[in-house]
């Protein structure tokens, strides 16, 4: 059973949030229990190049404002067992990103934070069950298509990396524009906890 799955929603180009401003925001989420799941701690990795940025450590999975590849985004990586099907698990991951986005956009200390909601990066962090190969991608395509349909309706799927050492990552691109509210509505039944 795949349990290390994740999704990343990229910020719009030009959005480059100040990592220092994210620390009190995420610590506030813990105080007010503003996200689903067991929220434990905030880790600061802003000192590393293209790194995980600021990370909210949770029992079920970690949520970060991630700077990998120099493309900031909201990443949720599930660590423990998730919903019974892969599409349900991925929808729960996306929903966690969307809920975090909604909270971040309310923060005065993070002005102008906008997401590119037409694209979702799906990440399988499990080299045993989901290596970064065309075969592994093909074997998951059906489940990924179902996930994409439930999230966006019409959407395309593409394997992201060629390097077999990398995680299997899939770019899901919607045919149409979507708002944060509409995606929250489409994922309303999913939850990480």
């Amino acid at each position: 059973m795949l349990q290390r799955i994740g999704t990343k929603l990229f910020l719009k180009e030009g959005c480059d949030p100040d990592p220092a401003a994210l620390i009190p925001v995420m610590q506030g989420w813990i105080q007010r229990r503003q996200l689903p799941g067991l929220l434990i701690d905030v880790a600061d990795y802003s000192h590393v190049h293209h790194g995980p940025g600021i990370m909210l450590i949770c029992n079920e999975g970690d949520l970060s404002v991630d700077f990998a590849e120099g493309r900031p985004g909201i990443l949720y990586m599930r660590k423990r067992k998730h919903a019974p099907t892969l599409p349900d698990g991925l929808l729960a991951c996306v929903r966690q990103c969307l809920l975090a986005a909604e909270l971040l956009q309310r923060e005065d200390s993070l002005p102008g934070l906008q997401l590119d909601l037409r694209q979702t990066r799906v990440i399988f962090s499990d080299r045993l069950r989901a290596p970064n190969t065309p075969e592994a991608f093909a074997s998951r395509r059906g489940e990924l298509a179902l996930f994409a349909y439930r999230l966006y309706g019409d959407a395309s799927l593409d394997q992201v990396h060629d390097d077999p050492r990398e995680n299997l990552a899939v770019s899901v691109v919607a045919a149409d524009d979507h708002s944060l509210a509409s995606l929250l509505g489409r994922t309303a039944a999913a939850s990480v906890s």
Binding site: Y45, A68, S125, R165
Partner: peptide, 27 residues
Amino acid sequence: LADLAEEYSDAILHVTTRQDFQLHYIH
């Protein structure tokens, strides 16, 4: 080490003062 940090930890490898590596937030 890179794979393990990514899959089980937080994608960070930490070098210690005893030339070890440490991975944090492991279950």
